[in-house]
Design a protein around this nucleic acid. Structure first.
Lengths: 224, 224
DNA sequence: TGTGATGGATAGTAGTGCGATCCATTATCC
DNA sequence: GGATAATGGATCGCACTACTATCCATCACA
């Protein structure tokens, strides 16, 4: 398949495909001549996955590259794949620098991270301690404490128990998938793409619950 | 309080504060002269909230503006506040345009959105149908179907049930908060800031579960 | 044999989240 | 009361991201 066909079948413009090729998001096609390359079905699948992660999940291109690169070289151990996918965080360069600064002036390990480790311990989760998720959770706990919200890691325990049950559903989604690449792709899909779906459902449920509890205040407004 | 004190107390640089003032993220201080304005404690709180949403939750500045603007003018009905917060989605201009195009070529209402409505109906959630959350969920369902993942809205029902229980926790977090602005701030905190915390906990639990199920493949690597 | 697509490279664009600088005005300290 | 320094307001610039556009020599294919 030539690049024009790849473009037609995926709906992605040729310049964008070239950009992904340059950036290593898409492996180069099999070169048949100095100015000709051949792309296969797996390029199409990969391209669709990239578009999904960038377009729907809105991951930065760099993060998608990390995920896909790590996943395709570490093909074999499903747990490793989950770990890699789990560890890839969407942070831009600017934001990274800002984080650096904040971390430095906070003394390299904020109280929130310590609290996050306590929560992990309380839940009995066994994770390798360098996870980005712990830092991420730590940041939120720091912010909650800075804002005097009165919400601490203990108040998050009920949430953690539900998160635990969500993760059980997640690993169930891996059943019945055969190939190695298919498993990797499924792991990416389940752990990354379901994130916006989960948040969306939470928001829908929130609207429902808040209507039942505090609602009725002004109950017109079906118009958009 | 002068701008310099606001900067010192918040840890936010003066140019950044000026930028927020320009963009309407922060209400202007009470002008005492042509080149002097006075800021109060509520400016400090607001600034901290902005920094939390931009820095920790990584919302685009425009989205934060929408949320805060809507929340502070609609002070009164807690359900309205939840709805507003719920409806603000972080989308950049570029991405918006891309969405526009995709929606046009898909005929203005994708199958995923229809599926999303079915899921909402199956859960018995009562929401006004224009919600961004439905569109968001629809996009994910579209992507899952495009990728032939075999995951459809029915497979998401177990997730939806857990999301429902999460939302019950969310509304519980509103208890014991008194003032109107305090309630609004709490609603923002709970529904927006807890998002990264939820995702982080899900990832931690995923790592734990995947280790228990598929793990043991290569169990060294405590080093970071 | 020529026409148009291809790969590869370089440059340009729009949008975001600031930081830097300039300016006239004005609080403030001596 | 005069120097100093800070303030509000404005404009410019910068780094980064995700593309888009253009150019070019080369080559398939009709």
């Amino acid at each position: 398949m030539k690049i024009s066909e790849l473009s037609r079948r995926s709906g992605v413009s040729i310049p964008t495909i070239k950009y992904y090729l340059r950036d290593g998001l898409l492996p180069p096609g099999r070169a048949t001549a100095a100015n000709q390359a051949d792309y296969g079905e797996e390029h199409l699948r990969r391209l669709r996955l990239v578009r999904t992660l960038v377009g729907v999940r809105r991951l930065p291109v760099g993060a998608v590259k990390e995920i896909l690169g790590a996943v395709t070289e570490q093909d074999g151990d499903l747990h490793q794949i989950f770990g890699i996918v789990t560890d890839a965080r969407p942070v831009t360069q600017q934001q990274k620098q800002a984080r650096e600064r904040e971390r430095q002036e906070a003394g390299e390990e904020t109280g929130g991270v310590t609290d996050a480790r306590e929560l992990v311990a309380a839940m009995g989760w066994e994770v390798h301690s360098g996870t980005a998720a712990i830092r991420s959770l730590g940041e939120v706990l720091d912010a909650l404490s800075d804002m005097d919200s009165g919400i601490d890691w203990r108040s998050l325990l009920p949430y953690a128990r539900l998160a635990d049950r969500i993760s059980e559903l997640d690993v169930q989604q891996m059943e019945g998938v055969s190939g190695v690449l298919e498993l990797a792709e499924r792991a990416v899909l389940v752990s990354v793409l379901l994130e916006p779906a989960l948040l969306a459902m939470r928001r829908l449920a929130q609207e429902d619950k808040s209507a039942r509890l505090f609602g009725g205040g002004s109950e017109e407004g079906e118009e958009e």
